[in-house]
């Protein structure tokens, strides 16, 4: 799986790392059940802080895209729906960014999301 981060970008590095995993999962270059590189290893590889990588992994775990197991590293959740879930999360994050750009408060965005659930 390809990880690419831009330290010059305004997006936090951890979020960029999470976005790489989502994109890889969505385009099939990472498969459900695949093991991600250990956080320390990926940090060394990219020349970033290990906590930055862990923040990215933590975010992916909250999104239900990876499992973090003590001593066993990070594992993309097994199951055929993982790529679709990654795409859904990406679209949601885009929508949230759009909402901020429109000047919506976080509460207004959540309210809007609730309304669209019908």
């Amino acid at each position: 799986m390809l990880f690419r981060v831009d330290p010059a970008s305004a997006v936090p590095l951890g979020d960029q790392i999470a976005a790489c995993v989502r994109a890889a999962l969505a385009d099939g270059s990472a498969a459900p059940g695949e093991r991600l590189p250990a956080a320390r290893e990926l940090a060394d590889s990219l020349g970033v802080n290990v906590h930055t990588v862990l923040r990215g992994y933590q975010r992916l775990r909250e999104e239900g895209l990876i499992e973090l197991r003590r001593g066993r590293g990070a594992l993309i959740v097994p199951g055929a729906t993982a790529p679709d879930r990654a795409r859904l999360v990406s679209r949601l994050r885009e929508a949230a960014a759009d909402a901020r750009e429109l000047g919506l408060t976080d509460e207004e965005f959540v309210e809007l999301a609730r309304t669209s659930l019908g």
Binding site: M1, L2, F3, R4, V5, D6, P7, A8, S9, E34, R35, L36, P37, E41, L42, S45, L46, G47, V48
Partner: peptide, 15 residues
């Protein structure tokens, strides 16, 4: 080749 921005850092890893 891969299109990589000037300030971008990249790594690839696979088991």
């Amino acid at each position: 080749r891969l299109a990589l921005g000037a300030s971008e850092v990249a790594g690839w890893s696979r088991a």
